[in-house]
């Protein structure tokens, strides 16, 4: 089947055609920029705070309300082998039944040109094919992950009850991008304290309007509030600039990482064949070449 046939099939609800097209986008053989009325939510936060479990609960609520929910679960590739274990399905109970859920895992792998430009094509494709709630999950650890989240015009930041990790992560720019902040695992002690710490830190930046909610994905508490908060959220136009900045930065980042000669530069620098400033120059040259090609 050619791309057009696949697209027609996907639009009329054929999952396999949609799945094939996603693969074609991923491998750079198909692009899709048609921008329909996209509803996309980025979910990020430190490892293990319960993002996937929480998304499982959102899926439940939204599918019950008649929405079609697509999840793009982005996991890092191993920098050494390029391989990845994509395991987010583990926690999203119910995600593999019912016609109105589609979960696709994606590795931030070492494609030439990086994964960044492909994410928005995938989101647009989902939307074009009738998926009314599109969720992108990443572990908010690095620049490229933040950039991926920034494709969504609604951003949910999830933290756990322990340390208020996200306040520490402020410098990475995640916190200022969040439209809603959730402290999950509210069934555990210290969740409330963490929420208060976050609220205090937001007020220092005069961002008191960002809602901070407590949820327990495990005990199904606070989910209704979160859903209504998300449903009534109006994307913040003034943060567009911030989001585009993150997208561009992380694209820049992934261009470097996905370039096969990047590793060579690292090796040469660590073997002392090149000085650090020489290696910076050759990195710049490399990116310049890639931009021209």
């Amino acid at each position: 089947m050619n791309d057009n046939e696949l697209l027609m099939g996907a639009k009329s609800g054929d999952r396999r055609n949609l799945s094939k097209l996603l693969s074609r986008i991923e491998s750079g053989k198909f692009t899709f920029q048609k921008d329909s009325n996209v509803w996309a939510l980025g979910v990020t936060g430190p490892p293990g705070v319960g993002k996937s479990t929480l998304i499982g609960k959102l899926i439940e609520q939204w599918t019950n309300a008649g929405e079609k929910v697509a999840v793009l679960a982005v996991d890092p590739s191993s920098p050494v082998s390029g391989g990845a274990i994509l395991g987010d399905r583990l926690r999203m109970s119910n995600s593999d039944i019912g016609e109105s859920v589609f979960v696709r895992s994606l590795a931030t792998r070492n494609y030439p040109g990086g994964i960044i430009p492909k994410i928005s094509d995938m989101i647009n494709l989902f939307s074009y094919c009738g998926w009314s709630r599109i969720i992108i999950e990443t572990v908010g650890s690095g620049q490229s992950e933040i950039g991926i989240i920034a494709f969504a015009d609604r951003i949910l930041l999830v933290d756990g009850p322990d340390r208020g990790d996200i306040i520490q992560a402020e410098k990475a720019g995640i916190m200022e991008m969040a439209d809603i902040i959730v402290v999950n695992k509210s069934d555990l002690p210290r969740a409330k304290v963490t929420a208060d710490l976050i609220i205090e830190s937001l007020s220092l930046d005069s961002r008191d309007l960002v809602p901070v909610l407590l949820t327990s994905a495990l005990e199904n508490k606070g989910i209704n509030d979160l859903v209504s908060c998300l449903d009534s959220l109006i994307p913040d136009k003034s943060r567009k600039n911030l989001r585009i900045r993150q997208i561009l930065l992380s694209h820049w980042n992934s261009l470097a990482i996905s370039n096969p000669r990047f590793e060579k530069i690292i090796l040469d620098a660590s073997d002392g064949i090149m000085s650090i400033s020489e290696s910076i120059s050759s990195l710049m040259e490399l990116l310049h070449e890639e931009a021209k090609s």
Binding site: S81, G83, I85, L86, G87, R89, R109
Partner: peptide, 20 residues
């Protein structure tokens, strides 16, 4: 092991039905 050999592995987790 498959990951380390450069593959992308999607692990389903336990207790999935054949249809899932």
């Amino acid at each position: 092991a498959l990951r380390n050999a450069g593959h992308e592995v999607i692990y389903t987790g336990i207790r999935k039905t054949p249809h899932e």
